[in-house]
Design a protein around this nucleic acid. Structure first.
Lengths: 142, 142
DNA sequence: TATTGTTAGTTACAAATCAAACTAATATCT
DNA sequence: AGATATTAGTTTGATTTGTAACTAACAATA
């Protein structure tokens, strides 16, 4: 019964420690440079990457709760990174689109994200990275 | 430049999604059954696993901030899962020890954790699990 | 033995998160 | 058309976290 099962071996714990450590470095970038929170970065990313969409679509794509998205959108709007337009045929929907300023920020963070990811990946072989990706995806689904 | 680098490929994001999903199921156990928070579970685990120690030692072992530990200790004390004893030779230190009740809870959660971990691991081959462990450990250090 | 520095742990306040209730617009059903 | 249900998004209040200042006990140095 007592064969050295420690927290380090417990997958949820190990995942959390890794996730926290991995987030830290990049977080510094959007926090310090643009005063953004994590959810704001995610929303910005989705808009920059996939073009205009409604808050609901972002919720679904990013699996974020609508209150989180709502607040992130407000914050990004205040920073003039995005603007919202009511849709004519259904006034419940608002299309969100990045302003030029928002696009510039996206471009910067996108590049930084790729670089950061590359740096993290550098410690693994490409096989390891493949396994890691596959495992993480499986875990995220279950 | 635009070769489909999506958030899913971004390691910090993938790690967070996986970590969140993996935590959920187990969280339900200590939350619903014992009204515990994550930090409380970690503190309980360390005490159950490694025997009496001070809050500071828990901070170091679990890499948790002292305020978090302080609050968790209070909460566990209120639930009568642990008690504290001032050390005679240095009254700044208090030794924390689980009560019988706390030990019972630890035993239950320990078993549950192992089972949960086994269930998660079941979706991987043992090679995959090895790679995963190794990668997560590396990431946690950097 | 004062003075200054360190360490363990707590408290207090601000920021962030979560859940649930709410508003306004549209859809559906009778 | 009128009542009821859904949907997009917001607001609110309670819980949780993070940061920094604080207290009390001990150590070190002069």
């Amino acid at each position: 019964m007592d064969d050295s099962f420690d927290l380090g071996q417990f997958l949820p714990y190990a995942l959390n420690q890794a996730a926290e450590a991995a987030s830290l470095g990049f977080q510094a970038r959007y926090r310090q440079r643009y005063g953004m929170l994590r959810t704001e970065w995610r929303v910005l990313f989705h808009l920059g990457r996939h073009g205009d969409m409604t808050a609901k679509e972002i919720c679904d794509r990013a699996s974020l709760h609508k209150t989180k998205v709502s607040r992130a959108v407000h914050a990004l709007e205040e920073k003039r990174f995005l603007r919202r337009t009511e849709q004519i045929h259904d006034r419940r929907h608002e299309t969100l689109s990045l302003t030029p300023k928002g696009q510039a920020v996206y471009a910067d963070l996108y590049k930084a994200a790729r670089a950061y990811d590359a740096a993290l990946s550098a410690q693994f072989t490409s096989q390891e990275r493949d396994v890691l990706d596959r495992c993480l995806k499986k875990l995220a689904q279950s």
